[in-house]
Design a protein around this nucleic acid. Structure first.
Lengths: 175, 175
DNA sequence: CAGATCATGTAAATTGTTACATGATTCT
DNA sequence: AGAATCATGTAACAATTTACATGATCTG
């Protein structure tokens, strides 16, 4: 379901687009929130067309097909946002690693955490660059809130990894 | 792969356990990091036994089977932690909702965010209660770091939802 | 003894990843 | 002309969810 919602959202935010365009939008615009490969996107778009949520215009060079959201599609999206009970379930390899940290030697755990902190610092810088590049007029456009959330999350992970590394180092020193 | 790792981790943290026990441990201990249903856990344990990562003792009432991690299993877990490049990809319905917020009327978005903030406040309180109940001796045991991370994340979501609701409310007032 | 809980499984459907396959157009 | 990129798809496999199915043991 969420894939379908993400596609409807992108078609709302960016206007008519091809599967190829949407694949790239997944990478550039919404990758903080959801991911999908073209092999999942193309069949889903065809199903959505069959369900009347989008229209297809088969034209353009290289067999390009352009999809456009229909009124029914917009309705579906609104209903999902306003009426569907959100699923807050969460899967994260990073959190799984956090759970397992105590089975490592202190120095191993610290090294792992420092590497994580570094990776999240890089992501944070990337997201902040995107944010800075945004014209202030777009401050409330699509993606703005998701970007803010992504920045907060990257900062959280960086800080958590750094602080936890320091904490474990201190614990190790005491003994 | 991550399911297998989570199971090995739980068997390391909690000692020998049945599939049923592990199903409950997923809910109580590691739900912040990963989730799995019994229908996924039982077959996976059998595969792991076939691969020599755990041993099975078929005994106990009601056909209960007890699984114990082997040296090979521990090795697999350590290798995963220390050598596998972490995947930082992330899927979250909450972030998807954040992306889509601008398509709603201000008052709808604000209502949605306030509900989210409330839900995350509840989760935060639950996690903090678990943390407070923990004896200080367990401060560095399994789950401790994951719990800290979970608390930070719940707080982040609550604050983000609240602040964003306030921001949208202000923007709406200005016009 | 009835209801709750313990305990294990399988099947079908959905979702997501990786790999395979193909051809058109544009750019240098 | 050759390389890069645009553009679409399918197939096989892996992971996950939901539903179906069954029976043992404990508790009041």
């Amino acid at each position: 379901m969420s894939l379908r919602i993400a596609l409807l959202g992108l078609l709302t935010a960016a206007g008519p687009a091809s599967g190829y365009d949407l694949t790239k939008l997944f990478e550039s615009s919404i990758s903080n929130a959801w991911q999908a490969r073209h092999s999942q996107i193309y069949p889903e778009l065809n199903k959505m067309a069959a369900d009347g949520l989008v229209t297809v215009e088969e034209a353009g060079p290289r067999g390009r097909k352009t999809y456009e959201i229909t009124a029914e599609g917009s309705g579906e999206l609104r209903t999902w946002l306003l009426e569907k009970e959100p699923s807050r379930s969460y899967r994260s390899e990073g959190a799984l690693r956090a759970f397992l940290l105590p089975m490592l030697e202190s120095h191993e755990a610290v090294a792992l955490l420092r590497t994580e902190a570094q990776a999240y610092a890089v992501r944070l810088a990337e997201l902040e660059a995107i944010c800075a590049a945004q014209p202030s007029s777009k401050k409330s456009g699509f993606g703005h809130y998701a970007l803010d959330l992504g920045i907060r999350q990257a900062r959280l992970m960086r800080d958590w990894a750094e602080e936890t590394a320091a904490e474990i180092e201190n614990l190790a020193k005491e003994t």
